[in-house]
Design a protein around this nucleic acid. Sequence first.
DNA 1: TATAAACATTGATATATATCAGCAAATTTA
DNA 2: TAAATTTGCTGATATATATCAATGTTTATA
Lengths: 235, 235
Amino acid sequence: MPFHFNYSIMTNNQANCLFCNNKSVCFKELTGDELARITENKVEISYKKDETIIKQHGFASNIYFIKKGLVKIYLENTDRNLIIEIGGEGKVLGLTSLNHTKHYMFSATAIENVVLCEISMDVINEIMQTNQYFNRQVISTLNTTIEKILKKLYCISHKHLNGRLAEALLCFADDIYKSHKFTLGISRKDLSDITNMATENVVRLLKEFNEKKYIKLTGKNIEILNYSALKQLSR
Amino acid sequence: MPFHFNYSIMTNNQANCLFCNNKSVCFKELTGDELARITENKVEISYKKDETIIKQHGFASNIYFIKKGLVKIYLENTDRNLIIEIGGEGKVLGLTSLNHTKHYMFSATAIENVVLCEISMDVINEIMQTNQYFNRQVISTLNTTIEKILKKLYCISHKHLNGRLAEALLCFADDIYKSHKFTLGISRKDLSDITNMATENVVRLLKEFNEKKYIKLTGKNIEILNYSALKQLSR
DNA sequence: TATAAACATTGATATATATCAGCAAATTTA
DNA sequence: TAAATTTGCTGATATATATCAATGTTTATA
């Protein structure tokens, strides 16, 4: 069979950002020119579950706008990871390196199939020089991040195991899957990295919540049965 | 004795910001006009030890630029506080509310006599509309904050008591007092709110460090004797 | 100055949580 | 399909850390 070069795998998805209906709030009020500059310097990429998107300490060359799917954002360590946040549609990764460090502060991995736009940091820096609206959106986004991390810090430092796990489950139901019934895309180990406890304790506590009918647990399928009991525990 | 009205207590310190040699990096490249606007909308104030500067959940009406002295920045709670950072000269408080929330995210209290400039949030918002340099400095400052909080989160979630206390002592020596010999301006209770441990454990560990000759401890006077041992512990 | 209040210290004890070891179940690889 | 690897589960045990109670010490108050 003669060799036919497959052009499609060499061609980046270069849909014009101007016509994208799925823009991050940061990009909502960019001018046509600015969006054109972004179009020239972005690629849309798909990641499969478990693929690494950002590596902590690596050069912060791009930012990533999640269009579809979930990612775990975490601090890496030789012995143990700490998951800071599960990010979904609309989450922008990499802004925390802007005007601060050449490296990423954390790692990010797809926990299900993900579609995102990778945008060159250079063009972001360029737009920051000219568009105040963009800067203010970045500030707003960073402050949202700070609030989330402070909440996490508070949770881990002030709450016991059951409160931390209850809070994580409510976060899945309310913010991530937006339903009282969901299928966890992550392992018990990941849950332990979110709640900062031993995996065995995640297992034991999930079992306990199940026995007390706070949740209905079937492997990775979880249904919240007693929302207010979990809410109470998380205090 | 006839009553003489003391005008001085009614007159704010309105030194012109243009001639201030002590400007935050955020304010370094403002135009003369912008500095004039700030001059009109700022007051220099002194706080005594233990006075509250910012109250968590209060309206974020001003930002505070610390010119002199140390403050503790902390999350409040009915049972227990968590000190996020000890801030000194050059620290700006309140930026984390910009474009995000009308309220302060944390409380701040003077731990020694403090001189600061209180600047109206309105004029800060005004300058953010016109000066990109200012915006970028704010972004830089926020990202520094994020990195610090992440370090704290990591410390509290991954390290044991001795590591957490060692890290706190090194922070005092390296970043806050910038000397291996210093007099702590805070109580053992505050140290426990920094390291997230029981006050009794702070006392016991300080004693242990003293016995092992890692530090020389005399009440609130601390001298670092074995820097590398503490550094090792903090890992 | 006397008294009260807050802070610091110490040892004993209780509790929360991690670790270990062994096994079952599920998933991947050969 | 079988073997190997990972993931989930369970109970027993060890450990880190908090709590409690009592006492000394400093600082604030009457």
